[in-house]
Design a protein around this nucleic acid. Sequence first.
RNA 1: GGGGAGAUUCCAGAGCGGUUAAAUGGGGCAGACUGUAAAUCUGUUGGCGCAGCCUUCGGAGGUUCGAAUCCUCCUCUCCCCA
Length: 376
Amino acid sequence: MNFKLEAVDNHSNARAGVITTDHGEIATPVFMPVGTAGSVKAVHIKDVKVDINARIILGNTYHLYLRPGTDVLKAAGGLHKFNGWDRPILTDSGGYQVYSLTDRRKMHEQGVTFQSHIDGSRHLFSPEGVMDIQRLIGADIIMAFDECTPYPCEYEYASKSMEMTHRWLDRCVARFNETEGYYGYSQSLFPIVQGSVYRDLRIKSAEKIASVGAEGNAIGGLSVGEPVEMMYEFTELVCNILPKDKPRYLMGVGTPVNILEGISQGIDMFDCVMPTRNGRNGMIFTSQGIINLKNEKWKYDFSPLDPDGKSFVDSQYTRAYLRHLFIAGEMLGPMIASQHNLAFYLWLVDSAREKIIDGTFAEWKKTMVEKLSRRI
RNA sequence: GGGGAGAUUCCAGAGCGGUUAAAUGGGGCAGACUGUAAAUCUGUUGGCGCAGCCUUCGGAGGUUCGAAUCCUCCUCUCCCCA
């Protein structure tokens, strides 16, 4: 994997670059649609690729390990072959499930024992095991096994957790280095900064992560319920420590506004379930603001979903029609909304990239933030 | 023509003298959702000058301190038998 910086904004830390992987190039800043179980929920691969034009999508180690299982993925020739996505894939390590499935797991130095949410069976996820699983899944970018700490989080706990995430990182790196991919292309390991909302911990963690010399670095443990100002504060703090010549990935973020803020702080990669999940639940993000399609006010609105939208669904369908689909419980509704939202997110980061390159990012961002946070 | 059952807040449907502005479900309306246990979850759903008051349970009367709940008549539905 290779990262080349192409432009840096004069008024912020925003930058534009290109990540090159064996599955193709990723222009940054980039938004990566989440495909936890090997599918971007409710959207065809063809639409993810052609209409939305996503450059890279996510998969999830915990979920793919439980279903379909590594034996199936290996037999298929890896996740790319299995789901038909031939561009880059990034897999999360299961570190987020340590947070989201907190009452179904036990954590110890060795790793985390999850009790499957599907059948209750117990499975140990160790740093070594998680590397092995991600080798078998075959993602281009794989993540170190960490604990995503909750918010709020006591200092003592955050500190101990961070130290363990660091020890786990060393084990991940060791295992990663002594193994290789199964499918003939290379994989890169990204470590993850933790430290909750404590400046000294975040600094310490960022320095540790930077010292690893990985091909890219991630910031985790944010957007877990803390005030957005905190998220911005710690993103900035950590970005200033992480190496400039490697991509920076802010995990799990976020709203369109969050993403623009992140970009201006020097983040290159984002992922979030929001465009798909909120889309399935009737919310769409548009260039004019946020729309809750289930609201009565769209009942007779026969205007296009998003007059400036780039996806075919934006001009094909009206707000009134999409509202009808949601009210009637038609599955096409969530499909259209997911597709629109992802196309919008990709348009947003692509536009940011253009503006960074032509030097107009700052003023563009200002007007966009105003528009995007509006609820219409 | 004979016999029986029933009319409840948007709908279905509980309630069978006070704790009932009325269970529950549906529908409606609104909110939440940030490395996905989510096509999920939550709130609300008579009115008002809203820690209180007013009007509601087919209609009209009556019994009672007190009725959606008991009695009388009326109106209308549905079922069975001829």
